[in-house]
Each structure stands twice: as C-alpha cells, then as structure tokens.
C-alpha cells in the first residue's frame, strides 16, 4: 500500500524510469554529466501507485488517467507527440486510428490506451471527425 507523499515515505526505494535510484540523482551527478532525462522520469510502477492513491481517495477519473499514463511511459517522446497528432480531430481516417490502437496494444502493451483510441475512432466516424477525404 503506497504511502503519500511517496517522496517522503518511499525515498529509499524510488527509482527513475532509467532504473537509477532516487538517491543517486544528485546535483553532483548532474555536474559530472552522469544524468540523462530518463533519470528524472517517473516509472510505470510509480504512476500505478499514484493511480491507486487517487482511486482510494475517490478520484476515479484521475486514477484512470494515471493508468493510461503508466502505459505511455514506454512510448518515446517524439512518438507520443506523433500519436497525439494522429488522435486530433480531422487528422486521421478510421484505419489510421485502428493502426494506432494496434501499435499501442501490441508494441507498447498499452491495452487501455488502445481501447481508448478505438472508442475515439468510432465516435469520430459517427460525428464526422475523421480526416476528410479531400483534406490536404
């Protein structure tokens, strides 16, 4: 059961997305050039722990968001931005959205996000929010 704030209660066991322990993320390390951006990134597990904390406190939708986020931690930065663009209205046809969902599901093991994209595709189809065939 994660305790909150995790920074206070779990400082000894917290690790960054890179696997580096929180205790080894120091200014001295930065100065020596030993740190990368992944050393200050949150892990999938940390996000799931925060989701649990949010859910227990009654913030269900925030918990769902953090669970989607947990799935997305493994998607590279540039690709996440690209995925967001694909999901914006008028950008993609149905097949492209299905392809995005498949990539999320199979390549990144992100079933919640995949389902979310499929659901969007269906709504976009009904509401005329898919890419217009004449679009440039």
């Amino acid at each position: 059961m994660p305790q909150y704030p995790r920074y206070v209660h779990h400082a000894d066991t917290l690790v960054a997305a890179s696997g580096r322990a929180l205790n080894h993320v120091t200014v001295a390390d930065a100065e020596l050039g030993h740190l990368t951006l992944d050393d200050i990134q949150i892990t999938q597990q940390s996000l799931r722990d925060q989701a649990q904390i949010a859910r227990d406190a009654g913030y269900t939708q925030l918990a769902q968001n953090l669970e989607r986020a947990a799935e997305l931690t493994v998607v590279p930065r540039d690709e996440i931005i690209a995925m967001y663009h694909i999901l914006r209205p008028g950008r993609s046809d149905y097949a492209q959205l299905m392809a995005l969902a498949a990539r999320l599901e199979h390549h990144y093991h992100a079933p919640i996000c995949a389902q979310f994209v499929r659901e969007a595709a269906d709504v976009y189809h009904v509401r005329g929010m898919l890419r217009h065939p004449d679009a440039l």
Binding site: Q41, I42, L47, L66, A69, E71, R77, I80, P89
Partner: peptide, 25 residues
Amino acid sequence: ERAFVDGDDSPWSKAFLASAYASRG
C-alpha cells in the same frame, strides 16, 4: 463539439494529451 474541434482537439485527444503529460510526471 464545434468549438472543441475548432480548438483542434476532441475530448479523446485532450484526455490522451493529459495522459501523455502524466506519463512524464
């Protein structure tokens, strides 16, 4: 819906964006 789309998003893309931010803490 019209204003949302004019704002270049849908509820799904916006929610995805929120998750993208959260995925980086």
